[in-house]
Design a binder for these strands. Structure first.
Length: 478
DNA sequence: TTTTGAGTTGTTCGA
DNA sequence: GTCGAACAACTCAAA
């Protein structure tokens, strides 16, 4: 073919890029485009949304990298559904190449773009790039999607061969990307956003940022299994936001995990497999974005008592580990994985708020927000999802705090008002004896909120809700 | 078709 | 403080 268009979306890199590789191989000339899609941007409430600034810098870096090789990246601001077919027509491209995206919104958008292109005699070619195995490449013996992680993981690993994570080398053909006309990058302000929220994050967007994080993590991956659950430690890779926007290739990450091996490499690889498990599930069962995977639990009427959600979101539940976690999220756009489970469990099983409200809040705040992983994680925590924990397993926020932040280091990092509270009471400051309160000048209720709920009572009420839901379904079914 | 083994990340209670 | 058992019954996946 004569001309291809590579449409960058959440694959903002040049290295090891499957869609770019196929476009460069298929066509004599390739042009490149990124669209700041108003169909997405218009839904964002926060004009200082960290993700827009993060992506904007990633796009700027990508454009500069292409220009250093004699090409360029055209950057548009509008509805991708209209802009992509219009650009394809203006430039007379034969086919548009893009990385396949498994989220419901993306699937609908791509179907619409494909239909418009097709009516004009052009094609949209979607290429597997953001996963090792596509949605139908790891199935049960009877050809159905796995619903339990462990057998999925076993099947995934059994199919893994080095060719699966071999890099798509594009470097030698990048000179086929040619500028049509001088291309401008609209400023963040022109897009209607500000960047100050990102400045506080000290995370470098783009391929360079990803490669710096990966280099740092390679030295720590062996200790990943031991350290990953302790939020005060530097245990995880911190690559989630870069992986979300494709600033690093999943194949490179799997390659690295294999190279390091051992329990550290295996545990980290397992996390990458979880990512694909949830992407595969959301694609096969798109309704689970809004509904419990286990239908019998979709009917639970969560009491949602007034003020509970706000206390959680504003980090004033009176449970330090939960409040510290929420301050980390609100202040940085990131939350440690262990804390995501604790905060989610607390909102649902202690505050009795519908898991969907929590999922939506995380969707607004997380820089690394990934719909499949977030929905899957929330449903797991709420005990309503596929492969969910047993319904009677309710996290105790004080036990979790004592176990995973034993010295209260993480708590005090985000709750300096607890600096003077002794380790023994930092997980439950309302238990601090009156004599100690006087000596320390710390008074629960004055210097830090009293607990909004009693955990033991809240836990008992949760078990009743679940028993009623499970019993009700059995009754209906019978 | 039937059977069998197993299921990310826990908590509480009582000895 | 530490340890083992109980917490229920169900569904999935594979033999």
């Amino acid at each position: 073919m004569d001309t291809a268009l590579i449409w960058f979306r959440r694959d903002l890199r040049l290295a090891d890029h499957a869609a770019l590789f196929h476009a460069l191989n298929a066509a004599r000339r390739t042009r490149a485009v990124f669209v700041f899609d108003t169909d997405i941007l218009d839904t964002l409430a926060d004009r200082a949304d960290r993700r827009v600034a993060f992506i904007w810098r990633g796009v700027a870096g990508l454009k500069a990298a292409l220009e250093a090789r004699g090409g360029t990246l055209h950057v548009l601001h509008g509805s991708a559904r209209r802009e992509i077919p219009a650009l394809a027509a203006r430039w007379g491209v034969d086919a548009v190449f893009a990385a396949r995206d498994y989220e419901p919104f993306a699937g609908a958008r791509d179907a619409a773009v494909a239909a418009t292109l097709h009516a004009d005699g052009r094609r949209l070619i979607l290429v597997k790039d953001q996963v090792i195995f596509d949605t139908d490449e790891v199935l049960t013996g009877s050809g159905r999607p796995f619903q339990v992680f462990t057998p999925y993981k076993r099947a995934w690993l059994a199919r893994l061969t080095p060719e699966r994570y071999a890099a798509y080398a594009v470097e030698e053909r990048l000179d086929r990307i040619q500028p049509e006309a001088p291309a401008l990058l609209p400023s963040l302000e022109a897009l209607g956003f500000r960047s100050e929220a990102l400045d506080a994050l000290r995370l470098v967007p783009g391929e360079a940022g990803a490669s710096g994080l990966l280099d740092d993590f390679l030295g720590r991956m062996r200790a990943y299994r031991q350290q990953r659950d302790f939020p005060a430690l530097k245990g995880p890779s911190y690559l989630s936001a870069h992986l979300r926007f494709g600033m690093v290739s999943i194949r490179e990450l799997v390659r690295r995990a294999q190279e390091v091996g051992g329990e550290g490499g295996e545990t980290w690889l397992s996390e990458l497999i979880w990512r694909e498990f949830y992407q595969m599930l959301l694609w096969h069962y798109p309704h689970t974005a809004e509904h419990a995977f286990q239908a019998r639990f979709d009917a639970i009427a969560w009491p949602d008592p007034p003020g509970h959600f706000e206390a959680w979101a504003e980090a004033r539940t009176g449970y330090p580990i939960v409040d510290a976690a929420m301050r980390q999220l609100n202040g940085t756009g990131y939350m440690h994985n262990r804390l995501r489970m604790i905060a989610a469990s607390f909102l649902v099983k202690d505050l009795h708020v519908d898991w969907r409200r929590g999922e939506r809040y995380f969707a607004e705040k997380l820089l690394d927000y990934d719909q499949a992983a977030n929905v899957g994680g929330w449903q797991w925590s709420a005990g309503v999802g596929t492969d969910a924990q047993p319904w009677f397993r309710v996290f105790n926020p004080v036990r979790q705090s004592e176990k995973f932040d034993p010295g209260g280091r993480f708590i005090r990092r985000y709750l300096p008002e607890l600096a003077a509270v002794p380790d023994r009471y930092v997980h439950a400051p309302w238990l601090l004896p009156a004599a100690a309160q006087a000596v320390l000048g710390f008074s629960p209720g004055r210097d830090y909120p009293l607990p909004v709920v009693d955990h033991a009572a809240a836990r008992a009420a949760t078990l009743v809700l679940f028993k009623a839901a499970a019993g009700g379904e059995a009754h209906l079914a019978g």
